[in-house]
Amino acid sequence: MAAMSPSERRLQKELMSLMKEPPPGVTVDGDQASQNLTLWTVHMEGVPGTLYEGEKFVLQFKFTNKYPFDSPEVTFIGNNIPIHPHVYSNGHICLSILTDDWSPALSVQSVCLSIVSMLSSCKEKKRPPDNSFYVKTCNKNPKKTKWWYHDDSV
């Protein structure tokens, strides 16, 4: 506790507040995160009244020691990857705040809220048009992808 790096200090604070006051439908695996502050697992439930009602998803956050100046690596993991025009079947998410529009004032909580909102505003469940090509050719780290953000409607 005494000799924590600035990124660990901030992650510790975020973990405490996320466990205490989580956004609706979001729960963080606190035990796992406190053992390894750089790898978090977040459980997410589909919001009632949306296309994803009743579904359960799992998000993985990976942090570097440059956090919060460097954005976290966020992917869906597990068996149930949401079918959404901005989510590839390998769990990669096309969301500008995860790369270009990242800001150190954002947090795990605000990223979770953005993803909940992205899912909730979806009108039609379908994969991105270039899904099969992207999944075959992409890097394991979604931050290495040169994302092209063009659809602000969902």
Partner: peptide, 17 residues
Amino acid sequence: NICLDTARDAVVSMCGH
């Protein structure tokens, strides 16, 4: 707004943050 600690060597931006 970045480290979430009490600000030390505090500065405020023109937009008030």
